[in-house]
Computed example of a mutant assay.
Amino acid sequence: MKKNIVLIGMPGCGKTSIGKILSEKINLEFYDVDKYIEEMTDELISSLFKKGEEYFRDAESSAIKEICKKENIVISTGGGVIKREENIKELKEKGKIFFINRPLENIINDIDTDSRPLLKDKKSNLINLYNERYELYKKYSDVIINNNLDLHSVIDNIISNINR
């Protein structure tokens, strides 16, 4: 396999949890784009958002470019990575993109909106983000993985789709 495995989807869909377990299971290095941005900028995501969403998106695009120089890795992206086509181009160049499609009601029931800058204090913001982004996730993904089962079933489904 010469491709990266890229996970996209809504905040709270399971990208990071799935990515960590998947990378261990198939013995590839794992990159969480948000953590990478925090290390790269020496600032928390919430602090970057305080400077404006565009400021954060610029940092995100820089991080994507850096991470995409690597091969044979698992990448968990932030939920808004699809807002810039340049990010998707970078990710697709060496990667296969998996949309982790988790039912919105499941996300709403267990996401901590207070820790997510774009969802701060309002679950209705999550619904708005879902409506704004869902078609983009579908458009940019190579494979749609439904996350309505246990994580290990989801991961097995990704593994079976990696080399197709």
Rank of each mutant, 00 (worst) to 15 (best):
M1V: 05
M1E: 08
K2S: 00
I5R: 01
I5T: 05
V6E: 08
L7N: 10
L7S: 04
G9T: 13
M10E: 07
M10K: 09
G14V: 00
G14P: 02
T16G: 04
T16S: 15
S17C: 12
S17F: 14
S23K: 09
N27R: 09
L28Y: 13
Y31M: 02
D32P: 00
D32T: 03
V33M: 07
V33G: 04
K35R: 10
E38P: 04
M40E: 07
T41C: 01
D42F: 00
E43T: 09
E43Y: 09
I45L: 11
I45W: 04
I45D: 12
S47G: 11
S47F: 12
S47T: 13
L48V: 04
F49W: 07
F49R: 01
Y55R: 06
Y55H: 15
R57W: 08
D58L: 06
A59I: 07
E60M: 11
S61Y: 00
A63M: 02
A63Q: 02
A63E: 04
A63H: 01
I64Y: 04
K65A: 10
K65R: 12
I67R: 08
I67A: 03
C68P: 07
C68H: 02
C68L: 11
E71A: 03
N72T: 10
I73L: 03
I75G: 08
T77I: 02
T77Q: 04
G78N: 14
G78D: 14
G79E: 11
G80Y: 09
G80C: 01
G80T: 03
V81P: 10
I82R: 06
R84T: 09
E86K: 05
N87E: 01
N87I: 00
K89H: 14
K89W: 10
L91S: 03
K92H: 06
G95Q: 10
G95H: 06
G95K: 07
G95M: 02
I97H: 03
I97P: 05
F99V: 06
I100T: 09
N101I: 01
R102M: 10
R102G: 07
P103M: 13
P103V: 12
P103N: 13
L104M: 02
E105W: 03
I108S: 02
I108G: 00
D112C: 06
T113Y: 02
D114A: 03
L118G: 04
L118Y: 08
L119P: 06
K120G: 06
K122T: 03
S124C: 08
S124A: 13
N128T: 14
Y130Q: 12
N131F: 11
E132I: 10
Y134L: 15
E135I: 01
Y137E: 07
D142W: 01
D142P: 05
I145K: 09
N148F: 14
L149S: 15
L149I: 15
D150P: 09
L151N: 14
L151Y: 15
H152E: 13
S153L: 07
V154K: 04
N157P: 01
S160L: 10
I162N: 10
N163H: 13
N163W: 14
